[in-house]
Amino acid sequence: MRRKNSNFRFVISVLAADRVGILRDISSAVSELNGNIDGLSQTVVEGYFTVTLTASFANRLAEDDIRRKILSRMDPERISVFVVHHDGTVAARTPASGDRYILTLTGRDRKGVVKLVTTYLASRKINIEDWFMDMKGDMASYVGEVAIPESLDIRMVHEELTGLLAPTGLRVSLQHENIFRATGEVGPIASILDVNRKARSL
């Protein structure tokens, strides 16, 4: 595997109306520039494809070289491409994390709920690592994966969130991610606990 030289490493984000073959086109563009994708997260929301990836290249390139190469394979009117140099110090500056919890909000959708919750989480220095939303009619389900600093009392966080959302009628739950891994995976339970323990000791 090519070494991740931060001088030649970029973060690439693409937003486009979904169709078959978008990721093929992006990866082909990277490959033609003699690059290697070494990190990727992709999803489709309401018909819109979005991907964020990191790629390392053998040769020095400008951000715009990569952007133009990707656009050359697509309809430039229907795509948004964003490229920046990868900052190797970003990972070290990621907010201090504690155990990962799953926050769910379920009930009739209300305007401003995301702002309400995310403002609270930010005030408590709780980092959101993933956030999903699902709508069925006017019933909404929000699922957030959040890292709660060890210094915070989980019961207090839960009570504060419950109080905050009581006027909206949304039901709140906050539970350690292990319970979802336990019920959703087939691996030994002991290994789930071991992974958490090792992560804490790093």
Partner: peptide, 14 residues
């Protein structure tokens, strides 16, 4: 984790 799996577990508990 699938959202539906997470919500199924929450439903079991709540």
């Amino acid at each position: 984790k699938k959202t539906s799996d997470i919500l199924a577990t929450v439903r079991m508990l709540q």
